[in-house]
Nucleic acid binder design. Structure first.
Lengths: 239, 239
DNA sequence: GTCTTATAATTGTATATACAATGCTAGACA
DNA sequence: TGTCTAGCATTGTATATACAATTATAAGAC
């Protein structure tokens, strides 16, 4: 990357536009300056402006009509299917006993997979924690979490028996964005043993990434024994 | 006119690459041709190739490392978890071929499980359909659906090769409420065979119930091969 | 007044070119 | 042998330019 100081010019244009949208300077449906005008405002070429605008369209912030102009798109409808729920609270809501077991808390170097998921360079130092969550003493979730060290410096000094990583992070940052990937896998030996699972037992893997502002903060792999856990959601359209 | 026949060249490059990935010509992790090589293969400029590759990175199909090369990242079918999305459209959006195979379409008597899930009396007549959805001829979903016969009288007369049950039902009723339960299971023999799955392959089971107004309309068991499918959702608060 | 047509504005795509940044590798050197 | 360095391949960004496609608008024809 360019280090921390410099950033590409197309990115400057993107940030200018998306800031204006967030601050409602460019309200929903409003027309934003033409490529030509932005070209002059930023003293960059039209292709650079074009790239910035195309990416903002891809991100759903803008809407373009050939021959007409570029407009702020309306906010996408969103329903919290998988709300970010604290597993400790969830278990206590069932009047069961929550506990956890910290397997690992360390600073590690991001391999290719983590680097890609966490938006850091390969080899960058990141926090890594491995935590087993238990319901009445029975493992129901293995939380394999990676946290950006440049954003959460104190992660390694926390006591997770008092406060889950999730709880800690959400006190630090307002959550702005959330991504979930859900899949069924056959867990490898190490994971199976930590969750006290039988051979051939399937496993529900939820990969969760959380953002605060523009910043990707953390990526967690949440393994649930298939026979002991399921996700549930109900969406009402309030029609 | 550009109309429907022609397509931009960067898109041709994109489809070439993504087809190769889907067909495993470019397997996971493999290195794909350099921009220079693609420039020659397609007789287009490097910027055009660059745009195609950048968009494929944004779509999660590729992974690039400056100074090194471009690689196939792990690809799997993805589906937005929260919205109720038509699997046929979803597949066609990936430029893949959608088809389905109707295994069963009948009127049946609700057993205890179905009666409870569908809110009818045990022994009541309900529609039952069993449909395999295929992506490029490979099964990606087994849809085991039960529909209330007192609400949807014509369900049994539909041609599901033209319109999926989901499509049909959503034209009839405005969807007002939606429930999802997601779990990882080991499918039984019958399901495994219909989905062409190996023994011990885990399976993602989504149980979906849909309401229109106050009425529970339908309950579907959606089985997905764990190795070929995953759910994905992203929630942005855009603020 | 209404329809048609030309024109201008704006976005969409494509190219050739240039230089910067990154990471790997082979060879120089101690 | 081990370490450093220069060079090369590859991707990342930026520009000027060109023409195509789409849409709105204004001018003109009737």
């Amino acid at each position: 990357m360019k280090g921390s100081g410099v950033q590409p010019r197309y990115r400057a244009v993107k940030e200018f536009i998306s800031d204006k949208i967030r601050s409602r300077d460019y309200p929903e449906g409003a027309r934003i300056p033409t490529e030509q005008q932005l070209t002059e405002m930023f003293a960059v070429s039209r292709m650079t402006v074009n790239r910035a605008l195309r990416e903002l369209v891809a991100e759903g912030l803008l809407l373009r009509r050939q021959g007409v102009g570029t407009f702020v798109s309306s906010v996408r409808a969103e329903s919290p299917l998988l709300e970010i729920r604290n597993i400790a609270d969830e278990i206590r809501d069932r009047h069961h006993v929550y506990s956890n077991r910290l397997e690992c808390l360390e600073s590690a170097r991001a391999d290719e997979r983590i680097a890609a998921r966490l938006g850091v360079a390969i080899g960058a130092e990141v926090w890594h924690s491995l935590l087993v969550h238990l319901e009445n003493g029975i493992p129901v979730q293995l939380e394999d979490r990676y946290v950006r060290r440049d954003i959460v410096a104190d992660y390694g000094a926390q006591d997770f028996s008092r406060q889950t990583p999730n709880q800690y992070l959400s006190t630090l940052f307002p959550l702005s964005e959330l991504e979930h990937i859900v899949e069924a896998i056959l867990p490898e030996e190490r994971i199976r043993r930590l969750l006290d699972m039988d051979r051939h037992d399937p496993c529900l893997l939820v990969t969760r990434r959380t953002w605060s502002g523009q910043q990707l903060v953390s990526c967690a792999y949440l393994y649930h024994p298939g026979s002991r856990y399921r996700l549930c959601s109900r969406i009402g359209t309030t029609d």
